[in-house]
Amino acid sequence: MRSSAKGSRADGSPRVRPLRPLQHGFRVARALLASQYALMLEFRAEVLLWALAGLVPFVMLAVWIESPAGAALGMGPTQLARYFLAAFVVRQFTVAWVMVVFEEDALQGRLSPMLLQPLHPFWRYLASHVAEQAIRLPFVALIAALFFLVLPWAFWLPTPQRALLALAATILAFLLNFLIQCSMACLCFWSDRVNALERLIFIPMLFLSGMAAPLEAFPPALRRLAEWTPFPLLVHFPAQLLAGGEMNIAAGFTALAVWIAGLLLLVTLLWRAGVKRYGAMGA
């Protein structure tokens, strides 16, 4: 059943006209996002629980605001409150869980049908994440509104410029976290249980990202060390942008770009090498 040169097929049906790459990409993205949004809506209660599980910054706010060490940071209660609210918001939209689902899909054989379609499986996971963030949005807005009801003195509106920069930084931070997860997910091709790596990065993610404390609270040596890792870029940098803190904005975006480019390369290489080892278990 080969397609003929004149644009019709052996069965007489019209040949599908190829779309331009951009048009095709847009259509795939729209279809993937629509289906993943519908799927995530089915799990809205679960998504709410995930959102609530991200309340760590508020716990840390309560700790810092009552502690004399908080004053020693040079950040008043208002700044601390804004930072931790911003950290909460940023974290909600930068969470990535590719490793867990990829491992499960690989072990259960669900990866095979994905590999047989002309679309890289990571695009599907990306769409799932974006859809899940869309479901989280009203919950996050509600929690932020409650926050300002309880602490009205902490209310602020970022300048449009800062809001845009914070939005861009959050999107890039999400992309960075997504690629970190993708690179580790690729290790599934070598080991069945890469999920354990998630636990390995949990501690640095909690402390070095700025979720437990702003980087300004770190001893200088530890702060310098943290800044050599991608973790502060995942929460601290976008959160400080949103909260209106002082920082080197150009350096932050440059670091994000460098890490993202490096990880894109790493993921591409790991995927190419790994997929050759794929044994299509369970499929």
Binding site: L19, R30, A34, Q117
Partner: peptide
Amino acid sequence: DSLRVNAAVYGID
């Protein structure tokens, strides 16, 4: 829903 995704992936209008 899945069929719509497949149609888009395979470039079927």
